[in-house]
């Protein structure tokens, strides 16, 4: 039986299987159709109907259920998550599991299209070490994300010494909804 205890392990393994069978387009289709459109359809319903309040309800439940080390900041215009210890990527790192080149892309792979469908867009960075931040705003809100500490104060993951150590690779999304719409920088 496939279990939920080690779900992130066989989920990541499945990305690599799909890539072998159908390439990058099949992996993207999987995130959008199977995860956004099927598995997490309750998230889409909550956020479509409740906006930021729906985001708080959805991620409040799911991040607590997964025992994530995180902080959320909610205003009337933006929903921000600072992920200090991603339970999902953390599981892979602790167990030495890496079949697919960038596991972290799966979040934008399903969350991006889900948010686009209800008029939201994302500024986001992840460092491939189980840390990331997200700011979600209405598509017609042109506000740029602030500097480190600006919105979530001391909880901003970018203030942690582990955020961008020398040699780290950070992927950045700017007002994005597509998992491929990112830039990459190496910390020197």
């Amino acid at each position: 039986m496939l279990g939920c205890y080690d779900f992130c392990g066989h989920y990541e393994w499945t990305f690599a299987w799909l890539h072998r069978e159908g390439g990058h387009d099949l992996v993207r289709a999987y995130w959008d159709e199977a995860i956004h459109g099927d598995s997490q359809r309750h998230a889409a319903e909550l956020i479509s109907e409740g906006g930021i309040e729906g985001m708080a309800r959805y991620w409040g439940h799911t991040l607590a259920d997964e025992a994530a080390g995180h902080h959320t900041t909610v205003t009337d215009r933006v929903f921000r998550v600072d992920m200090h210890q991603c339970p999902s990527k953390g599981f892979l790192l602790r167990n030495g599991l890496e079949q697919y080149p960038d596991y972290c892309d799966h979040c934008m792979g399903w969350i991006g299209p889900m948010l686009r469908a209800s008029g939201w867009t994302v500024d986001h960075e992840h460092n491939h070490h189980g840390q990331c931040w997200w700011e979600i705003r209405r598509m017609d809100d042109r506000t740029a994300p602030g500097p480190a500490g600006g919105l979530s104060g001391e909880h901003d993951v970018r203030l942690l010494p582990t955020w961008n150590p020398k040699g780290a690779t950070i992927d950045a999304y700017e007002r994005a909804n597509d998992p491929d719409d990112k830039s990459r920088r190496q910390v020197t």
Binding site: C4, F7, Y11, A34, D38, S39, Q40, T62, D65
Partner: peptide, 8 residues
């Protein structure tokens, strides 16, 4: 594990 992963 988190049971909602059965959905996925």
């Amino acid at each position: 594990g988190a049971a909602d992963f059965y959905f996925a």
